[in-house]
C-alpha cells in the first residue's frame, strides 16, 4: 500500500545507522522499523554500519545504487563528522530525502541542587563559578552550550564528556550546575524526580512537559533542531522520494507508533524533499561557521 505513487521498486529496504546495536539511533530505528514497514508496505531492515562516527555509513551510501534499497538514518552527527575529518564521502555526497523527527535538546539540573530555574543557573554563572556540561566535545549539544554562553554573556566553564550517562552522573552529584541532553537520555531520572528540566533548546515546548518553557520564551534567542531523517544516494529516483514523502506523514499519524515516539519525547518533524535539501544545506553551513569561528577546524 504505497498509494498513488504505484508500487515501491524494492521489497526490502535497508535503513543503515552509524550507531552500533543498542545505541540511541539504533534503538530508535528498531522501534520505528515495524511501523514503517506496515505503512510503506515493504520490509524495513535496520543495518548497523558503525565506524568512524558515520564516515563508513556515508561512504557505503555514496557508492550504493540509487534504487531505493538502501538509506541512511541521519542525525547531526553525520554533518559534524563530515566537517571534523575528511571522510571519503561527506553529507554533501548524499541526497537528503525527508525528515521525520526532531529530538528536543533540554537543559536540566539535579532536583536537589540549588537551582530551580535557568535564570538561577545563569545568575550563578555570573559569579564566575558556573559549571555546565555537554556530552560530547564536538556536537550539537556543545554548540548549544557555547552559544548560550555567548548570548547570555556569562562565563561558566563548559566540561565535555564521553556520552550522556557520564555527564548525567556529574549533574546528579552536583559537579555540574546544568547539563544538556536528549529527553530520552534523562527520562529515567526525570520519572524518578531526580532531575528537573530548565528549558527546551528547540522551537516548541514538549507536549509531555507543557510547563517547561523554551529558551526563546525565557528571552534567549537560541533554538536548535536535532533532526532525525533519511538520506539516500545521489540521484535517488523521484518515485522513491515521493513514496517516502507519502509514507512519513502517515507513519507520524499512526496511533500505535505515536504512543511510542511521544513517550520517547520525539517531536514529529516531517520535512519534504525539496525543503529538506535546503534545511540540510543551512544546517551544514551554520555548523561549519560555528566550528570555524571557534577554531575547531580551519
Amino acid at each position: 500500500m504505497v498509494g498513488a505513487q504505484g508500487k515501491y521498486p524494492r521489497s526490502v529496504v535497508m535503513l543503515s545507522t552509524h550507531s552500533s546495536p543498542g545505541g540511541g539511533s539504533d534503538v530508535f530505528l528498531r522501534e520505528m522499523a515495524p511501523h514503517l514497514s506496515r505503512v510503506m508496505g515493504v520490509k524495513i531492515v535496520v543495518d548497523n554500519l558503525a565506524g568512524g562516527s558515520g564516515a563508513k555509513a556515508m561512504a557505503v551510501l555514496a557508492k550504493s545504487k540509487p534504487d531505493g534499497g538502501l538509506f541512511y538514518a541521519t542525525t547531526p552527527t553525520f554533518i559534524y563528522t563530515s566537517l571534523l575529518s575528511r571522510p571519503a564521502a561527506t553529507y554533501r555526497d548524499l541526497e537528503p530525502i525527508v525528515n521525520i523527527f526532531y529530538d528536543p535538546e533540554v537543559l536540566y539540573t539535579a532536583t536537589n541542587s540549588n537551582f530551580k530555574t535557568l535564570d538561577q543557573v545563569l545568575q550563578h554563572a555570573r559569579t564566575g563559578k558556573g559549571r555546565w556540561g555537554a556530552a560530547n566535545p564536538a556536537s550539537l549539544e556543545r554548540q548549544v552550550m557555547e552559544q548560550l554562553r555567548q548570548k547570555t554573556k556569562v562565563a561558566p566553564v563548559i566540561a565535555t564528556f564521553e556520552g550522556g550517562g557520564d555527564m548525567l552522573i556529574s549533574v546528579l552529584n552536583h559537579t555540574l550546575d546544568m547539563g544538556i541532553g536528549e529527553l530520552q537520555e534523562i527520562r529515567a531520572q526525570l520519572d524518578a524526580g531526580r532531575v528537573r528540566i530548565l528549558g527546551v533548546a528547540g522551537d516548541a515546548r514538549i507536549s509531555q512537559y507543557p510547563d517547561v518553557k523554551t529558551l526563546k520564551e525565557q528571552g534567549i534567542d537560541l533554538a536548535v533542531r536535532k533532526f532525525r531523517g533519511i538520506a539516500g544516494p545521489k540521484a535517488t529516483p523521484p518515485a522513491v522520494i515521493a513514496a517516502w514523502e507519502a509514507a512519513v506523514p502517515r507513519l507520524l499519524a499512526d496511533p500505535a507508533y505515536q504512543k511510542i515516539y511521544l513517550k520517547n519525547g520525539l517531536l514529529p518533524g516531517f520535512i519534504g524533499h525539496a525543503e529538506y535539501q535546503k534545511f540540510m544545506g543551512d544546517f551544514g553551513r551554520q555548523t561549519e561557521a560555528f566550528l570555524k569561528q571557534s577554531g575547531v577546524i580551519r
Binding site: 543498542g22 529515567a188 531520572q189 531526580r194 511510542i260
Partner: peptide, 28 residues
C-alpha cells in the same frame, strides 16, 4: 538503578531494555 550504563556491554543491555519498552532507572 540509575539507568546509566557503565560499559559498552551494559549500554547494549540498556538498549535491550529500551527495545522492550522498559526504562532502567530508579523506577524500574
Amino acid at each position: 538503578s540509575l539507568g546509566i550504563p557503565s560499559s559498552n556491554s551494559a549500554a547494549v543491555l540498556l538498549g535491550g531494555f529500551l527495545l522492550h519498552g522498559l526504562l532502567p532507572g530508579p523506577m524500574l
